[in-house]
Design a protein around this nucleic acid. Structure first.
Lengths: 102, 102
DNA sequence: CCAACTACTTAGTGATACTATGTAGTGGTA
DNA sequence: TACCACTACATAGTATCACTAAGTAGTTGG
């Protein structure tokens, strides 16, 4: 059910400020997507990087291994904008379908 | 983006009354999902049948070849109920994500 | 020193939708 | 009557995206 949606969530989280995979995973979990695991998030991040939607930077951490931070670039912000546009469309159509003829 | 959602839409359309693949496709198109084609819908219908969520009946048509009509059975209605439940969850979480910190 | 937590990576699989193509009935029209 | 448009179903192959599972490695506390 998350297909096509999770990537948008990751973009949105990154857009709120530089962050890294492990933290993104925990934020998604906190949001309610409790069974999203690290592997899933990292594959999305690899895809985002491959598609040139993000810039990355390795930084040391106090808590463990170095973190790979992500920020959206212009293409990433445009992708995010399109994502919310598609979501709004889908959402409105689904409500239309759900509410019709009750 | 439709991944996991389209099957629910098809269940909902069938639940409104006995219908068949070609008509379901046109209804989805009319709803706004303009690039959903017959092939997509038929593969979903095959899946629904394989998973025993629908009952089927062939009936002649005035307009062309015989139609294969679908109705939801108990399992199908339960699946539909769960689908809307999941949609409501996803939808609320997405809004939460979208609206936070603006 | 080892368990728990932090943090990243990737190969393989599965679910779902899309592409492309084929078959066939019916009706209109040139 | 020959052809085209529309109706209607079917399916093999592909692509996309997320999930499973496993591994590597740094840090901290008991």
């Amino acid at each position: 059910m998350l297909k096509g949606v999770l990537e948008g969530c990751v973009l949105e989280i990154i857009n709120r400020g530089e962050t890294y995979g492990y933290e993104i995973t925990r934020r998604l979990n906190a949001l309610g997507f409790t069974d999203v695991v690290e592997g899933t998030v990292y594959t999305i991040l690899v895809r985002l990087e491959k598609n040139n939607l993000v810039d990355t930077e390795k930084k040391p951490s106090d808590m463990g291994p170095p973190r790979k931070f992500f920020v959206l670039n212009d293409a990433g912000r445009e992708e995010l904008r399109k994502f919310w546009e598609k979501w709004a469309f889908l959402s409105s159509k689904m409500n239309e379908l759900k509410e019709r003829e009750r």
